[in-house]
Amino acid sequence: MGVQEIPFYTPFYLLIFVLPMVIINVKLEIGLNKRIIYALFRMTIQLVLVGFFLQYIFLFNNLWVNSAYVLFMIGAAGLSTVKTCGLTIKNQFLPILIGFGIPNLVMILFINHFVIGLDNIFDAQYYIPLMGMLLGNSLSGNIIGINTFYTGLKRNERQYQYQLALSANQWESTLPWYKEAIIACMNPIIASTETIGLVSLPGMMTGQILGGSMPMTAIVYQIVIMGAILISRYFGIHFSILLTRKQAFDDYDRLIL
């Protein structure tokens, strides 16, 4: 039971419904048209390019090529974190890269070897899409966590300094915001882990079922990926803050971001 192939032109049928959206937006002066059309256009181009690329990668299915692609994903995610969080690319790109690259790499290889039991743990079919899911989640968690930590610290600078004046060390003085950051990072994923499957079937499961897997197989994969996402997100944010904070303070323990 394979998936029904879609011809290249039929996705454009959906545009039939976009037309009334555009008309309604014009009539009601809801300024969304530009963004909707741009987003749809960009999404299509982006995915087609990735699709071509992945076709070749799957064709080679070579340890080094696959790993290079995974490193590219980690790099893109790292760059996006640094930019979104307003960190300096020069000083903080590498710490971020290591900070969430390592936990996710360890997690994906662990799953492939011990949980799924693959002979080739670098097999593109598993390595790349699963890593993509882990990284995507780690990325959003990292952005929330890092932002919470540094903006919280900045906003409460006087309280932080008062702690230092009381002779708490840098770690003790920043602990309230560190904890806040971990909680802020984990909250969304905990909520979605709790309710998953009740409201909608998760994307990966949907994909697998469409691809012909039995629901129970898809469920087991989903359980694994949810657990893995939760774990790597947790360690990712710890590592990222711990590694970035080395260069975020000066000799006087002042925040210099």
């Binding site: 309280q159 008062y162 004046a165 060390n169």
Partner: peptide, 24 residues
């Protein structure tokens, strides 16, 4: 006063400010 001595110097000072940002 320098980065190396700041902690020992801070430990000699009781600092009370108008904002009184006592830990939560």
């Amino acid at each position: 006063l320098s980065g190396a001595t700041v902690n020992s110097i801070r430990s000699k000072i009781s600092y009370v400010s108008q904002d009184a940002d006592i830990p939560k």
